[in-house]
Amino acid sequence: MSTALLFGLCGIVLFVLGLYFALTTTEMLRRILAINIMGNGVFMLLIAAAYQHDVSGLPNTDPVPHALVLTGIVVAVSATALALKLVCRAHELAAEQREEGDG
């Protein structure tokens, strides 16, 4: 069993794990965490795909997936930031509404 396959499988496990928790948990922060883990699984598969092509032990990995993952990481952090901001905003608006309801 090659290293690439091993890490590729690990990526799939991370993805499925993240997917399960993203679907089941109700707490928003955790759901965001789960989606991030899903993303990390995908990136892991891509990095593994780059390593797969390592010929005869030479460190000659494919740089294209590396660039893709770098792009993916930046996109993921942007999306996470937007999601977190929305969670905070929803939380504050809900608190405001509750106060108005009480007072």
């Binding site: 991030n36 390593y51 990481i73």
Partner: peptide, 28 residues
């Protein structure tokens, strides 16, 4: 896996900044 560039980026952005953002949001 022979991807030092991406390892740096993941530590800095994926773990570090995302983590900082998550903690900030958690506290809020």
């Amino acid at each position: 896996l022979g991807a030092p560039d991406i390892a740096i980026a993941e530590a800095a952005i994926g773990a570090g900044l995302t983590g900082a953002l998550l903690l900030a949001a958690w506290r809020r």
